[in-house]
């Protein structure tokens, strides 16, 4: 690897350009969000000169974002916790325990993972309606759990499978039953994976529009992203206000990511043992 000194710098150039390309859309959105509607129509691409912070205030009040923030936080937190719990239980059983039907169970999960939501949209809503769960928080939560659970199980199964059997066997020797192994060994060791999946599922729930629109029809129960998307009428004309709302939705995600990002990447690294 002699030539790597120069090569590294050569490689760094396109990578830096790509990095700019990943940040650029955010800045672009912010720029438009700070324009007045008039400026947006006249000159979409140019830098804002108006700094119309009023757009953010309008978006906040018109989309009832205060209330919807609470709704979204509630639904996201409960959904994610449930997904993580159920998925790590199943992942542990599928990766470390042998039982009749494990193959079929894993197959079901693999298949469920590949179903686009639109495919089962109408019968799914009908099922929820049969359980009288339309327009309820538990209904929306179960919708998210069933949508995002399969992938999380798959991920946790793969992750737990890397933890050597010797570790769990040692814990058994120390007098733990299966639940003890799960609670005292697997969950702590799985923390980095749980954190990654937690963040990812939180993103999915937080950014979802379609499922939330279908399940929550009552205006007061809506989630944040739905409230913001309703800022666009039949004719989406006030783009700056809409994008201001979008930024207000995205902001907490970016903050959370920046707080946890070292643990997500570094954590996964530390937790993984050779597979």
């Amino acid at each position: 690897m002699r030539s790597t000194g120069v090569a590294r710098w050569l490689i760094a150039v396109p990578m830096a350009i790509l990095a700019l390309a990943t940040i650029y859309p955010m800045l672009y959105t912010l720029n438009i969000a700070l324009k007045t509607r008039y400026d947006y129509v006249i000159d979409r691409g140019g830098l804002t000169t108006t700094f119309a912070f009023q757009n953010f205030v309008d978006a906040w009040t018109q989309a009832n974002m205060g209330r919807y923030y609470l709704n979204s936080i509630l639904v996201t937190v409960v959904s994610v916790l449930l997904i993580l719990l159920i998925a790590s239980m199943a992942g542990f059983a599928l990766s470390h325990l042998t039982f009749r039907g494990s193959r079929a169970a894993f197959l079901l999960i693999l298949a469920a993972m590949m179903i686009p939501f639109q495919v089962i949209m109408v019968p799914f809503i009908k099922t929820l309606s049969d359980f009288s769960m339309i327009n309820t928080y538990p209904g929306l939560i179960i919708a998210y759990v069933s949508q995002f659970l399969p992938f999380t199980i798959y991920f946790m199964t793969a992750y737990f499978a890397r933890i050597p059997k010797e570790i769990t066997e040692a814990a058994r020797v120390d007098g733990n039953n299966i639940y003890g192994v799960f609670g005292r060994i697997m969950l702590p060791l799985g923390r980095p994976a749980l954190l990654s999946m937690g963040i990812l599922n939180a993103l999915f729930c937080w950014n979802d529009i379609l499922i939330s629109l279908l399940v929550m029809q009552s205006p007061s129960q809506r989630t944040l992203m739905v409230g913001v998307s309703a800022l666009r009428g039949q004719y989406p004309d006030n783009v700056p206000t809409y994008l201001s709302g979008v930024l207000l939705v995205v902001l907490p995600l970016i903050v959370v990511y920046l707080i946890f990002q070292r643990q997500i990447t570094a954590g996964v690294t530390a937790g993984a043992t050779k597979g």
Binding site: I115, F124, T127, I142, P150, N177, I178
Partner: peptide
């Protein structure tokens, strides 16, 4: 234990994925 551990996941998928299908 293994069955109890996978039960919630399988039950959810059967009711909210397989049944709607």
């Amino acid at each position: 234990a293994p069955l109890l551990l996978v039960f919630p996941a399988i039950a959810i998928l059967l009711v909210f994925r397989v049944y709607p299908l």
